Amino acid sequence: MTEHIIYSVEGESDELKAAVIGAQATFKFFWRELSWESRRIIKSLDMAAVKMSFAVDDNDPQGPSFENMWVSDIEFDGQSISGVLMNEPRWVTSLKASDAVSLPLAALNDWMYVRDGRVYGGFTVDALREGMSADARDEHDRAWGLDFGEPGTIEVVPAAEGQAPWLLSRNLDSAADRQTLATLEHAEHPMALNMREKVEEGLQEHPHVIRDYDPDGWLLLHREVLAGNYSVVHALLRHGADPLALNAYGQTSVSLASEAGWPRITRLLEGHETDDQVPDKTGGFALWPIGFALVALALGWLYYLVVYPLRSAWAGHSVEVARPWDFVGAIMLLGYGLVSCTGPWYFRWRMRTPQCGGARLLDLLTMLGGFLLAVLLHDQVQRYVIGR
């Protein structure tokens, strides 16, 4: 999604070609909005459509190679955009209005959605409007019946009530544009914030949705990563979703987030970021004091299991070594204590390992390592005591 392959129509200006690049770079915001629109009982958008470049199947050397047409009822799988053709084609003779179509993402020419009469996106439309006279522009806007804003500026997401609009230049080529885009990439969709508790409740009541693939071979985690829904992704991970599971295209959620252009989600999936704003229903207290207490208890237990019999053997006294399971219990208790003390580091590495059933690979390796260490320690202590 980060590579821009531009299908140009003969005669397109440099301004229109630059507008296409801007539309492709910001398409993820369009798809995030549509991901939430599909959840709304009462729809919020007046219209949502993309403009795609269709190859012309006519051999007329005087005709264009591509025809740009609008498509509605959008579906997106990270590779292709599907929908229903809105225009009656002029050059593409194999299609007609209302036909179902599907094209690769690289064929995207523009996107636009409308809320309360206000246009978001519309990069190529803005380029055309800026080249019009004031009278022609007014006539154009009246014909559409929409508020396109000032020519030369684009909004890609609605601003919060009472907040100034997030304005971008059409070419996205200024430092202010880059800063605004970075801010928007890290910001949550308002519905994601409002539905946090419902998402948590839904995952608790229906845990199968975390691990079950849909008919297209995608996990819910893949869908939410593609849409850039950070808090939903975070909730899925907390409930055991596997960031290294593959979708139908062989992509992990980590690679999908990187390709889609959601850096904050990429860091979350890689274990480099946590979300302190996710509701905590436990009432909340620090875990590290409990961890230190467990470590102290485990060390005392190990002293009794290891040092006490060794000292007794050195003194020439008869001593009986504890059972292997006592050693296993002490080592496991020490492990739980260390994880509780250094949880953030452990869990960052944990999320980067594959999921095996209901556990992470790192959990299984840690438990196996602890078990083997306990058995080895028991055998060494017993061998020394017997040898004395």
Rank of each mutant, 00 (worst) to 15 (best):
Y304I: 13
F292I: 15
G283W: 08
W301G: 11
L362A: 06
A248H: 10
V306C: 13
W314A: 10
V278C: 07
G335D: 03
V307G: 02
L287I: 14
L299R: 06
A260S: 12
S253A: 14
A298D: 02
Y384H: 08
A359N: 07
T366N: 09
P309W: 03
G357C: 06
L287V: 14
A374F: 10
G284N: 08
V307R: 08
A315I: 01
T252C: 03
A245I: 09
Y304C: 11
L361F: 05
L246V: 13
T353A: 05
G291Y: 03
G343V: 04
W314V: 13
L362Q: 02
R323G: 14
Q382I: 01
S318N: 07
E320A: 12
G261H: 04
G370I: 10
A248F: 05
L287E: 12
R267H: 11
V321E: 01
L333C: 11
Q380K: 12
T353D: 00
T274R: 09
G291F: 04
L376H: 11
L361I: 05
G335Y: 04
F347S: 12
Q355E: 11
A257V: 00
L294S: 08
G370W: 02
S340F: 12
W288R: 15
A296R: 06
Q251S: 09
S318W: 07
A257S: 12
A248Y: 06
R323P: 03
R267A: 11
S312F: 05
L334V: 09
W301D: 15
L373A: 14
A330H: 03
H317N: 15
T342H: 00
Q380G: 11
I290M: 07
Y249A: 13
L302S: 06
G316R: 04
I265M: 09
W349N: 00
Q380T: 15
L361G: 01
G358F: 02
D363H: 05
Y384A: 02
P289S: 09
A286D: 12
W314Q: 12
Q355C: 05
L361T: 13
G370E: 07
A248E: 07
W301Q: 15
L269H: 08
T342L: 13
A293S: 11
A260T: 09
T252H: 04
T353Y: 02
W301H: 15
L302P: 10
L244G: 07
P289F: 02
G337Y: 01
Y308I: 10
G284D: 09
W301C: 11
Q251T: 02
V278A: 15
L302R: 05
F285Q: 05
G291D: 05
L373D: 01
L361W: 06
A313W: 01
G370T: 07
L310Q: 03
A257R: 02
T366M: 13
K281I: 09
L268N: 03
M332G: 10
A298T: 08
W325I: 14
S312Y: 08
L368S: 08
A248L: 05
G284I: 10
A330N: 04
F285W: 10
L334M: 15
R360N: 08
A245V: 10
I290V: 13
R352F: 00
L305Y: 05
L364C: 07
L268D: 05
L256V: 06
